[in-house]
Amino acid sequence: MTHAFFALIVRDLRLAARIGGGGGMAVFFFLVVVAAVPLGIGPAPDLLARIAPGMLWVALLLSSLLTLDRLFHADYEDGTLDLLAMGRVPLELVVAAKAIGHFLTTGLPLVIAAPLLGLMLNLDVAAFPALMLAMLVGAPALSFLGVIGAGLTVGVRRGGLLASLLVLPFYLPVLIFGVSAARAAMAGFPAGVAGQSLLLLAAVTLVSLVIGPVAAAAALRANLR
């Protein structure tokens, strides 16, 4: 069982690496979104520094949403998903493997790229550790909540946009706690305040680890009938 689980993750990583459009594309999109911000609101360094954590988080949300429709779509089209659903690995675990693959190919590269973009947005270096830690804690929630939207819209034509609409409200707690963790570190609040938002963010992530696979598997079963 564990072997099959890891094989699924490795398969997704391999597909992302070979077909492209995986981590590299997501990082590129992240970069373009962040580069569009100074062009839109003006290059004043202190203004950019103030909005940098929020901007980076919103860009992370958008890149995560953008890659959702690829989660199940190709497997649905060529019938792999039917085989996976009939296989011995429970569908919940299949979904969890997919979500982990999504996190490793889109969430993690973005977290690693975040400090570079933070420098470009004039973000205070003291806030980097808190921001990166918060992103690392929160990004799995984006993948595990995202699979719900992807599962609900599998087989729907132009499901990507619909999946984004369905999932975005669920992303908001992640955004709120993630940004406030970085903000608190930036404003030089005592570590307790940043720690509190980080703990709440971790709680949201843990809840999503449970809800995501169960709900997405139920949605896939409804859609594969």
Partner: peptide, 17 residues
């Protein structure tokens, strides 16, 4: 079925949000 799943996930999420 899909809408019912969405409504229930939403019901769990409403208090969190």
């Amino acid at each position: 079925r899909a809408a019912a799943v969405l409504a229930l996930v939403g019901a769990i999420n409403v208090p969190i949000i």
